[in-house]
């Protein structure tokens, strides 16, 4: 699936934050390019700057040094071609499922009729038909994250950003959602085909991604860039799977 044209690239990006105690370097000299159609996982320990990388792709942060090119152009503002799925779902409790999914479309100025149609399509795709008028408080974590996913997909972003999307879920629910995410990603009716997912779980990265960027921490820098060449669905008991786990683990440690 990967190896389309370059979608975005980090050019020697260093990110510093100014704290009362002084400057802290969160990312150091990050340099890589992402192709259209790739599913990239960024894996690393907490404090490695994984989420900061997503915010840079999103245009919410400007790099202290270096630059980010999106389709060859320097990224100057909020990146409207990116949409985010959050660890803690980030749903508005006073809105229904359908209204939450429509939010991103509303922010992009889509007309109400088109908005409803688009939202209904993605609600169906993530398996939430029947929940349209439910409120977040009535939903399990798994169903909440499906809403978060539908909201992000509904704007049909060129790149889907996922920040630890399964780590607030219980073990069984996250197995289910990982499985269904692959189903959604491989659905040809859905135009979104580039994904960048941040996770601290090595096995999750190998199960899902085509490519794993391994960050080591303080400051975060790329310690490894691995292509995962295993057919899907992937089996954790597979010997090659375990070899990838060991390799990534040794890169982080």
């Amino acid at each position: 699936m990967p190896n389309g044209p370059t979608l975005f690239q980090f050019e020697h990006v260093t990110q510093k934050f100014t704290l009362p105690q002084g400057d802290v370097t969160v990312l150091r000299d990050i340099h890589f390019e992402a192709k259209e159609g790739e599913f990239i996982a960024i894996v690393g320990p907490s404090g490695a700057g994984k989420s900061t990388m997503l915010r840079l792709i999103n245009g919410l942060l400007k790099p202290t040094e270096g630059r980010i090119l999106y389709k060859g152009q320097p990224l100057k503002d909020i990146n409207l071609e990116a949409a985010m799925v959050f660890q803690n779902f980030a749903l508005l409790p006073w809105l229904t499922v359908a209204q939450n999914v429509e939010l991103g479309l509303e922010a992009r100025g889509v007309e109400p009729h088109a908005r409803r149609k688009k939202a209904a399509f993605y609600i169906d795709k993530v398996g939430l038909d029947g929940y349209e008028e439910a409120y977040p408080r009535e939903l399990s974590g798994g169903m909440k994250q499906r809403v978060g996913l539908a909201r992000a997909l509904a704007v049909e972003p060129e790149v889907l950003l996922m920040d630890e999307p399964f780590s607030a879920l219980d073990a069984l629910t996250s197995i289910n959602l990982r499985d269904e995410l692959i189903d959604i990603w491989s659905d040809r009716d859905i135009p979104v085909n580039t994904v960048v997912m941040v996770t601290h779980m090595i096995e999750e990265a190998i199960e899902l991604a085509d490519r794993v960027l391994v960050l080591s921490s303080r400051p975060g820098h790329i310690a490894g860039d691995l292509k995962i060449e295993l057919p899907r669905p992937r089996d954790k008991r597979d010997r090659q799977f375990t070899e990838y786990v060991d390799r990534i683990f040794s890169l982080i440690a």
């Binding site: 073990a171 197995i175 289910n176 959602l177 008991r237």
Partner: peptide, 15 residues
């Protein structure tokens, strides 16, 4: 129990 956990169990058993 929610459906997601049940589906996750089935997936886990299969694996």
């Amino acid at each position: 129990i929610g459906i997601s956990e049940i589906l996750g169990l089935v997936e886990l058993l299969k694996s």
